[in-house]
Amino acid sequence: MIAQLIRAAAPKPRGAVVALAANDEMQLITIAPAAARARGVPRLVRRASGPLLLLLLWHVLSVTGLLPDTVLAGPATVLSSTAELLASGELQAAIWTSLYRALTGLLIGGSVGVALATISGLFRLGEDLVDAVMQMLRTVPSIALIPLLIIWFGIGEAPKIALIALATAFPLYINVYAGIRNVDVTLVEAGRTLGLSQAGLIRHVVLPGALPNALVGLRYSLAVAWLALVFGEQINATAGIGYLMSNAREFFQTQVIVVCLVVYALLGITVDLIVRVLERTLLSWRPAFSGT
């Protein structure tokens, strides 16, 4: 009887419907909107056709000689060059070096950013001490610090990692801080009446509440990590993808430059994919708009 009352009066949330089974028990049934189902040509094929056409055009321009190799090598040359670089092991070594730089920088910068955001998010004294400084520093473009970093750290690995760390600290700081400050105060009060201690509130209410923003910050940080990596590797690199590129520039090997660009892009996509998976698993509780 009560179940029937609720069913009649309750608004139905998108994607989930409360249905009344024959035995008068409520059940949750998830219904996918019609728009989410495939129609006609598979979506993947439709989306892949654009890039494939572009690739074909590039190839045609190359083989007809309209696009000389000295300007931009064609896809065939790029492919064979990739095979050569892989066979010699140069490409793998370069990828590992660059990946190591990006991730080390992100780890250092990200930890500092998250730690500072937690301090200024949770404590008013921390906010007064940290936030003004961070908001001021973040207006300085990190790339502009390269000369200073070279003076401080020389031209080895240190300035490259320092640059990435500096660049990645800010997006995480800003988003984690905003996430903590946006936690619904009523959720905190409800937690207090349930007997949560200060530490319990932080662990069970504040940090989970800040998680969506933190993941947004992580994605931004990763994006700027690649950017900083590209710039950082222009500093007298003796290894890594940037080194491969500047070498290729010396010898007008446009095919190697293209390979390196593709590798940068692929690394970026892979890492972004990892964050998406992370979001999907950690934020599975969120009602997401699935598009129409």
Binding site: I6, A10, P11, K12, P13, A16, L28, W285, P287
Partner: peptide, 11 residues
């Protein structure tokens, strides 16, 4: 095992 966003106001 339902999440809050799957519930009606009364639930």
């Amino acid at each position: 095992n339902a999440y809050p966003h799957q519930l009606s106001g009364g639930m």
